[in-house]
Design a protein around this nucleic acid. Sequence first.
DNA 1: CATTAGCG
DNA 2: GCTAATG
Length: 315
Amino acid sequence: MPREALTFDNDAIAKVLDEIGDLIELKGENVFRAVTYRAAARAIRDLREPLSKLVEEKRLKEIPKVGPSVAEAIEQLVATGVSKRHADLQAAVPPGLLTLLRVPGVGPATARMIYDHLRITTIEELEEAARDHRLQQLPKIQAKTEENILKSIAALRQRTGRSLLHEARASASEMVAYLKERTGLERIVVAGSLRRYRETIGDVDIVVASDAAPPIMAMFVAAPTVERVLAQGDTKSSVVVDRGLQIDLRVVPPESFGAALLYFTGSKEHNVRLRGIALRRRSRWTGSRRSSVRIAARSMLRASTACRRSSTSPT
DNA sequence: CATTAGCG
DNA sequence: GCTAATG
């Protein structure tokens, strides 16, 4: 098994340095400091040698734009995975402001100004404020700018192919309500990233407990919001609703509902770790102790092996 | 070595 | 924050 990679590679460190640059600007510190951190990040991406090696050989200063401060940050990142400068900035800047910078047309100064006036920290809130024309009441922002921000957000979403939480939730709730009404079943639950309240959603996952899958699948693909049917099977069906949002429906036996819900809620990384714990400890679990980790890990084993049998792919 | 202008 | 120039 490959060793746990706590070691930051060059690219990961460059990413942190770039983020330090953004945070410096958001905080309102000297812009040239931010510029320096970004210049150092660029130089690091061009390196052909691992930073950990340069640290050992005390040759960090040979990298362009790396002086005492940046070198210290790099050393800390290599050694511990975190940097004090980065942590301090994170503490000083409202969480979420960083994500507003993703919107083309919204730079550090604008992000700060919007936050100071409206306490906006997410792209959803920004979009809502723009729609309500609350942005153009702010200094330096007029109708044209507000419009550009809306377009940028739309383009952003187009690129990532993901939906915002509230949109995906609306579509998912509608489908769940429809299925509950038509099937009379109670255990129809949203899983996946939507259940984890991620702020953007790739696909919506819905899990149903039932031994009679086919009629449920038939109702699902015939739902009024469905624009297109991607697949219809006994354990899983996929449809497209709204403008491009995909919904996957899984029907599982009632006795597997808990395990399935756990499994399909993910994340994938979470599942991998949970499964690892379960495999490692299985031999020692002969039925003595109760613990949530144990129960979750056993469920994960059952769900993942069941999934392998039916050759259904995870999220 | 310390100070400082310039940097985009 | 870094670099190069200056004294």
